[in-house]
Simulated assay, not measured.
Amino acid sequence: MNFRILIIGFLLVSCSETYKKPNYIKFNLTTDSIFVTTKNKNVSPIFIKIVDRAAKEQFIDIDKKSEKILLKFNKSVVDTNYILEHYKFYGYYGTSNLKNYDTLYNYQLPFLKGKRYRVLQGNFGSYSHNKITSKYAIDFKMKIGQEVCAIRDAIVVDVKNHFEKNGTSKKYLNKANVVFAIHKDDTYVQYAHFKKDGVLVKLGDTIKKGQIIGYSGNTGFSSEPHLHFTIYKPTKNGLVSIPFILDSIPSSKYKKGKYALHN
């Protein structure tokens, strides 16, 4: 399944062109019927939003590594081209309606004990933390090659590790090395801007709080070396950035220019 990870944190694959089938759905044909099904090969739940020609929407949640029928058609009436012409399919990480998650969880600082780093950009930062997908993110200024640690136990959902360039134009938005993972309460975390080949974990790994998961860098949409991380919850419009508690302090208190020390 080819779900793209955007550095801004919004995770989406869509089918916007007529007759183009997304790679996370398939057609199963029987003598009389056409079934549109999906097989989730991902290590996290996903959901599919289906929009028909009349702009009606339906949402279908799919568990980890499971298959579900999305639509059924009479084969004598429609064909697969008709389906793709009249329906659009959008794939998102998570569940379509996550109501409860641990808002009081105390996340650990994303670096080793004894280390001290300055906040480069906090919540609602004007440079790049000004969208629904990034407004509660925190950036710590780190030299290239500093140890990045997991802030909570999680399962790795996706990894990017091969990029080596950075810049401040939009063409770099999808070119950061990242670790994207799911927590026990079905929230997600994204760590970003690792150096090339600097990620130490792989898809499907279980990572522990405090574990070194990679080395900081300056890849993707970035003006200088740093670590960017965000906590997300899934919604019907995709992942959105949420506030959190970091080392017993609300994320909103991490202001630009202040230092955080991991005691």
Rank of each mutant, 00 (worst) to 15 (best):
S248H: 06
V189S: 15
L120Q: 11
A192S: 15
V201N: 05
I144D: 10
F111K: 04
K170H: 07
I83M: 03
I144A: 06
I62C: 12
Y101L: 03
I132G: 14
L98C: 13
E17N: 09
L98R: 08
I25N: 00
A154S: 14
K256P: 00
I83W: 10
Q211G: 00
S216H: 02
I231P: 02
L227V: 11
A192P: 07
F89E: 00
N218V: 01
V36E: 03
D79I: 04
I50F: 11
G220H: 08
N263R: 08
T38R: 04
V148Q: 01
N42H: 10
Q108K: 15
Y19W: 10
M1W: 04
K184G: 00
F194C: 09
T31S: 13
V119M: 01
S128T: 09
T168N: 13
F27L: 10
N263H: 05
H183C: 10
L84V: 05
D52S: 04
P110G: 08
K21I: 00
F10Y: 10
I207T: 06
A54C: 07
F35Q: 11
C149V: 12
T133W: 06
D158N: 15
I213M: 08
K160C: 07
A260H: 05
I207H: 02
F3I: 15
L203S: 07
R152I: 10
T230W: 02
A176Q: 09
V240W: 08
Y90T: 02
I207L: 10
S252T: 09
K64F: 05
K209R: 15
F35V: 08
I132P: 07
K196R: 15
T187A: 11
S223Y: 13
I132Y: 08
G204K: 11
N161H: 09
H183E: 13
T168I: 13
I231E: 05
N177T: 14
Y24F: 15
T187F: 10
K196L: 05
I182K: 14
Q58A: 01
G220P: 12
P234D: 08
S248R: 12
I151N: 00
V36R: 06
T38S: 15
Q58N: 07
Y215A: 02
S66P: 05
G198E: 08
I8V: 07
K26N: 12
I212E: 00
I34A: 07
A54R: 02
Y254T: 03
F3T: 11
V119D: 02
L200I: 02
L227R: 08
I5R: 10
H162G: 06
I25S: 06
K184C: 02
Y188S: 12
K20M: 11
Y82R: 01
H162S: 15
G145N: 12
V189C: 14
H226A: 11
L71A: 02
Q58P: 01
I207S: 05
S251A: 14
K135M: 14
A55S: 10
K68S: 05
S134C: 11
N161E: 07
L98W: 10
D61F: 01
T95L: 15
I132R: 09
I132E: 13
